[in-house]
């Protein structure tokens, strides 16, 4: 059959569901092992954060798409959580190998890290669904002019939902791509576009934490000699 945009989107969704079918909604035993190895066990905080962000996400999803779609928002969030735990485990395995250390207490107790990682997982889910359900005309005429409701739920929508600085989201993108080999070429391109948007625009907003870091860096002075301008 011809490879239409709708068919491509349906194939991506099918693949995503297949990939995450065997993944768990809860941290695996391996992940729990990493939590237990921490100086401060983050298990409880992680579970609480996932629960809170789930409520916020479902509420905002229903506001944007329609109150009848609360269940759909919960389904999307559930897929995002599966991906979040899976990528977290892969990242920690890779860090253990790189650093020869099993105690990631600082990282695993960072709220910015978890919120960014979950936001990135959800962005992958939401971007996969763009061009599917709501483009079939069920949700009004906008479906026919290319301005699907779901397009509005793509990046940077998730930053607003989680009140997450773009600068923090940026930090997880590269490690996320490295840790999740099943990402399609289109999805990697999408995440790259998110990176560019942050670099060129979102990270330079007045409330960005980047300015404070630049200030700190300026006060501490250069750590090493700057490279020549040509480089």
């Amino acid at each position: 059959p011809p490879h239409t945009p709708i068919r491509a989107a349906m194939n991506s969704i099918q693949q995503l569901r297949f990939d995450l079918n065997s993944a768990q909604d809860q941290p695996s035993d391996v992940l729990c092992g990493y939590f237990k190895n921490c100086t401060v066990d983050p298990s409880e905080e992680i579970a609480k954060r996932v629960d809170q962000l789930g409520q916020v996400f479902s509420c905002r999803f229903a506001q944007a798409v329609g109150q009848g779609c609360v269940g759909l928002g919960k389904q999307r969030f559930c897929l995002g959580v599966r991906l979040y735990y899976r990528v977290m485990e892969a990242m920690l395995k890779s860090e253990e190998k790189r650093l020869s250390d099993k105690n990631f207490s600082k990282l695993l107790n960072s709220s910015a890290f978890h919120t960014s990682l979950l936001a990135c997982a959800l962005e992958v889910i939401m971007a996969t669904y763009v061009g599917s359900t709501f483009k079939n005309g069920d949700f009004g005429s906008s479906a026919f002019d290319g301005t699907s409701v779901e397009t509005d739920l793509c990046f940077p929508w998730i930053l607003d939902v989680f009140q997450l600085p773009a600068f923090d989201f940026y930090k997880v993108i590269e490690s996320f791509i490295k840790a999740e080999p099943s990402l399609s070429r289109d999805m990697i391109k999408h995440l790259e576009r998110c990176e560019h948007l942050i670099m060129e625009h979102l990270a330079w907003r007045g409330d960005s934490p980047m300015f404070e870091l630049l200030q700190q860096s300026h006060e501490e002075g250069p750590v090493e000699q700057a490279e020549p301008p040509a480089t």
């Binding site: 930090k171 490690s175 791509i177 990697i188 391109k189």
Partner: peptide, 21 residues
């Protein structure tokens, strides 16, 4: 992931990026 331009050096990882929290 071949098309993606990886910028992190080998000695950098997610731990270092969230170290300033």
């Amino acid at each position: 992931n071949q098309d993606y331009h990886f910028g992190l050096e080998d000695h950098e990882g997610i731990s270092e990026l969230f170290d300033c929290d």
